[in-house]
Design a protein around this nucleic acid. Structure first.
Lengths: 213, 213
DNA sequence: ACCTGCATGTTACTTGCGGTAACGTCAGTC
DNA sequence: GACTGACGTTACCGCAAGTAACATGCAGGT
């Protein structure tokens, strides 16, 4: 049975690939995003060329690894976004899901967001290829949800995309800052961000003594 | 006059330093953030060790270079933020200033935001040290302006800081995405972002056929 | 004049990483 | 038994960061 043989080989290769990815995961979690290919290979109990046969180059391995985490995170976010609750609650729950994730595994988060993108031969620096695919994917995803569910009048598509990326960026930057300084609890941060989206910035009155922001 | 001698030397060293920074600037603008120390030294007409004597290591040169641009950008932003106009106009003008800057010099922008942070010996990856100092500085600056000028009730300090970083992150992510895809004009982007801050997201009605976002 | 101190500059090296070439080895297939 | 093809290795290349160790030119004290 040739086909079964082939299928076995394929399955075996896939399993191997998953093992390698898990080893890479452990190393990245331990050493941060600058983990070397040598270190990853050693952790997996093999040597570099095998990694290269499986993933092409470091970027390929990064992409595969990032995809796993990104998919997982996006699944959680989608769940929060789709929960049966009112809008404010869903927004808060989505923010909280994201923040909980980056709080739980900051190394992974850092790897996804700041992927030490200095591969030699990385000429052609289109701005736009960078800034972590995770951000882009989250932005697009959120944009889609917004456009599907909200009535924004004409220009709804453009508005939704701008807002999707903008909100994701807000969440990301605030989360990054919060993770570094821990100036307040997660719940407080969530509330504050939701308040911002709810227009509390523009509703605030000017302070006495000067023109408002 | 020994003091004058010393002063001369100091001035000369400072001038040299500025020359080196300008050379580095040219190279970064041409080659992107992965510009090598060799290339920078060559552009400056000297060799590596001199760069290292002046800036310690690549991170030091990065820091010095980033500070120049960051200071310049922050000055423009402060000007927009302080202009005599109403709040909405000032917000739009600030957004536009930032976006115009990154549009005008995307290479510099990319260098500041994604500084190829892989210096060997960069152990100690505190999450929080990364994600470009520029973002942090802008966030803190904006937080200060917000807190100075807006009446946010109790918790005003925390709210202002969260919002400062959040808004900056929104601006950054949206700008990065926009720079990559150019889905609309700068003015449209500015309006859309200001609308988001103005609470239009939460004011929007649900689309027919499903619960709102 | 001469030595000292010091900044400026160089060449030549080490170290470490990404990536590759060339060579083994052990399944199953004709 | 020779052939294919995945899995694995050692040993290498190229390149960039960073570092000695050595040269040179210019003050200023003796």
């Amino acid at each position: 049975m040739e086909t079964t043989q082939r299928a076995d080989q394929q399955r075996s290769a896939d399993r191997r690939r998953r093992e390698l990815l898990e080893a890479a995961d452990r190393v990245v979690l331990r050493d941060g995003p600058q983990a070397s290919m040598n270190a990853i290979a050693a952790e997996a109990g093999i040597t570099k060329p095998i990694l290269y046969r499986h993933f092409g180059d470091k970027g390929g391995l990064y992409a595969a690894l990032a995809k796993r985490h990104t998919d997982a995170l996006l699944d959680s976010l989608r769940a929060a976004l789709d929960a049966p609750a009112d809008r404010r609650e869903r927004v808060e729950s989505t923010l909280d899901t994201y923040l909980a994730a980056i709080e739980a595994r900051p190394q992974v988060y850092r790897f996804l967001m700041h992927p030490a993108e200095g591969s030699p031969g990385d000429q052609g620096f289109d701005v736009g290829k960078h800034s972590a695919p995770l951000l882009r994917r989250m932005g697009e995803e959120l944009a889609q949800v917004i456009e599907e569910r909200l009535d924004l009048g004409p220009d709804s598509q453009r508005l939704a995309r701008v807002w999707g990326h903008g909100i994701v960026g807000m969440m990301h930057a605030a989360g990054d800052w919060w993770l570094g300084e821990r100036p307040c609890s997660r719940a407080e941060l969530v509330r504050s961000l939701a308040d911002l989206l709810w227009g509390r910035l523009t509703a605030a009155g000017d302070r006495v003594g000067g023109p408002g922001f």
